[in-house]
Amino acid sequence: ETEYTFDDKREADRAAKEAQNNGLRVHVTKDGNRWKVRID
Score class of each variant (00 low, 15 high):
Glu1Trp: 15
Glu1Ile: 15
Glu1Lys: 12
Glu1Asn: 11
Glu1Phe: 15
Glu1Leu: 14
Glu1Thr: 14
Thr2Ile: 14
Thr2Pro: 06
Thr2Tyr: 13
Thr2Lys: 12
Thr2Ser: 09
Thr2Leu: 13
Thr2Met: 13
Glu3Trp: 14
Glu3Pro: 04
Glu3Leu: 10
Glu3Ala: 06
Glu3Tyr: 12
Glu3Gly: 04
Tyr4Trp: 14
Tyr4Phe: 12
Tyr4Val: 07
Tyr4Met: 12
Tyr4Cys: 13
Tyr4Ala: 05
Tyr4Gln: 08
Thr5Val: 13
Thr5Ala: 06
Thr5Lys: 04
Phe6Arg: 00
Phe6Ala: 02
Asp7Thr: 12
Asp7Tyr: 11
Asp7His: 09
Asp8Ser: 15
Asp8Asn: 14
Asp8Ala: 06
Asp8Glu: 07
Lys9Tyr: 14
Lys9Ser: 05
Lys9Gln: 09
Lys9Asp: 04
Lys9His: 08
Lys9Met: 06
Arg10Asn: 12
Arg10Leu: 12
Glu11Ile: 05
Glu11Leu: 10
Glu11Gln: 10
Ala12Leu: 02
Ala12Pro: 01
Ala12Trp: 01
Asp13Thr: 08
Asp13Ser: 06
Asp13Leu: 15
Asp13Met: 15
Asp13Gly: 04
Asp13His: 10
Asp13Ala: 08
Arg14Cys: 12
Arg14Asn: 09
Arg14Pro: 03
Arg14Lys: 12
Arg14Gln: 10
Arg14Trp: 08
Arg14Tyr: 08
Arg14Asp: 08
Arg14Leu: 11
Ala15Asp: 01
Ala15Leu: 13
Ala16Trp: 04
Ala16Ile: 10
Ala16His: 03
Ala16Arg: 05
Lys17Thr: 10
Glu18Val: 11
Glu18Ile: 13
Glu18Leu: 12
Ala19Cys: 09
Ala19Trp: 13
Ala19Ile: 07
Ala19Met: 14
Ala19Asn: 03
Gln20Cys: 15
Gln20Ile: 13
Asn21Leu: 13
Asn21Ala: 14
Asn22His: 11
Asn22Ile: 10
Asn22Phe: 04
Asn22Arg: 15
Asn22Leu: 14
Asn22Gln: 13
Gly23Ile: 02
Gly23Glu: 02
Leu24Asp: 03
Leu24Arg: 08
Leu24Gly: 04
Leu24Asn: 06
Leu24His: 12
Leu24Ser: 06
Arg25Trp: 05
Arg25Ile: 11
Arg25Tyr: 06
Arg25His: 13
Arg25Asn: 08
Arg25Phe: 06
Arg25Pro: 04
Val26Phe: 04
Val26Lys: 01
Val26Pro: 04
Val26Thr: 06
Val26Met: 02
Val26His: 02
Val28Pro: 01
Val28Met: 07
Thr29Phe: 15
Thr29Ala: 07
Thr29Lys: 07
Thr29Tyr: 15
Thr29Leu: 11
Thr29Gly: 05
Thr29Arg: 09
Thr29Asn: 05
Thr29Ile: 13
Thr29Glu: 12
Lys30Asn: 06
Lys30Glu: 05
Asp31Ala: 08
Asp31Arg: 05
Asp31Leu: 08
Asp31His: 09
Asp31Phe: 08
Asp31Ser: 08
Asp31Met: 09
Gly32Trp: 00
Gly32Val: 00
Gly32Ser: 02
Asn33Gln: 07
Asn33Ser: 07
Asn33Lys: 06
Asn33His: 08
Arg34Phe: 09
Arg34His: 09
Arg34Ser: 07
Arg34Trp: 06
Trp35Pro: 00
Trp35Leu: 00
Trp35Phe: 04
Trp35Glu: 00
Trp35Lys: 00
Trp35Ile: 00
Trp35Ser: 00
Trp35Ala: 00
Trp35Gln: 00
Lys36Ser: 04
Lys36Glu: 02
Lys36Pro: 00
Lys36Gly: 03
Lys36Asp: 00
Lys36Thr: 07
Val37Arg: 00
Val37Glu: 00
Val37Gln: 00
Val37Ser: 00
Val37Asp: 01
Val37Lys: 01
Val37Thr: 02
Val37Phe: 01
Val37Ile: 06
Val37Trp: 00
Val37Leu: 07
Arg38Glu: 05
Arg38Lys: 10
Arg38Ile: 15
Arg38Gly: 03
Ile39Gly: 02
Ile39Tyr: 04
Ile39Ser: 03
Ile39Thr: 05
Asp40Met: 14
Asp40Ser: 15
Asp40Asn: 11
Asp40Phe: 15
Asp40Arg: 11
